[in-house]
Amino acid sequence: MNRWIRIVAPVAGLLGVILLFAILTGSPERYLSGANLRVVLAQTVIVAIGAIGMTMIIVSGGIDLSVGAVIALTSVVTALALRDGWMPIAALSAGIVAGGIVGIVNGLAITTLRVVPFIATLGMLGVARGVAKYVADQQTVNPPPTWLNELAVTFPSRDWMLFAPGVWIAIILAAMMALVLRNTVFGRRVFALGSNEAAARACGINTGALKVRIYALAGLFFGLAGVMQMSRLRQGDPTVAVGVELDVIAAVVIGGASLSGGEGSIAGAMIGALVMAFLRNGSQQMGWPNYVQEIIIGVVIVLAVAADRWRASRAAERS
């Protein structure tokens, strides 16, 4: 029952946001049009892919603050590879692998240096941003046009695709990771780690190695998000995506994950990403200035978590 509420509540929130703006904008046919839907989805690809990795980390009881910087770094890496004449598929892989390497470093800092994830990844936030500026020589990197630029476009060149390829990639990866979290030994151990680390260790699970794997795998997703960022801007920009980690964490948390670990779902995180995307889009259509969006999203995050705490305390009282 509890599990149902955890999914139903974000869905209801999403529908509420959509309904609200459909009414507020006064032209529901435009707000709900296919064209606008494509805009919203294309805008949310980067946060959604990041949220897939972040869900895993938060469920395991961790946090990663370096996502924005990693996106900037991997977008630069991808652009540089293209500029140096790499094949697009190789450049794409390079971006993803770069994210994975950063993840491994995060994981090792957390396990071998015994720095809490908040601090380890806060440090990485600075390091990755700095490395991105260094490898880009403090400039934007303009690669030659390739099909990578099509990944995150709003309107794909081939009509039958309906949405940008990046949207489909995000959907497929989200479905895959949802299965992995639910149905693999690895996935269940991620939950065990976040639920009660001491118990997991007492059962002979190598929690240190598990953490490194979690941050590394999540890093691959952040790397892919960086490729999407490169695709959207058609360039590698070392100063891009500042603060995106907060959007990503917010998406996961609005989707019902608990920052103390053990709880959370990919589906919820995807809905959380959509809630924020529709909020942004609706505010833009209303012509509200940027700062209004920021305030609204800030309030929504706190209310979503407060509602979750309230549910949890009621559930605790019942048992």
Partner: peptide, 9 residues
Amino acid sequence: QELALCPHL
């Protein structure tokens, strides 16, 4: 005395 279980699983 205190149980060592994962309550979410």
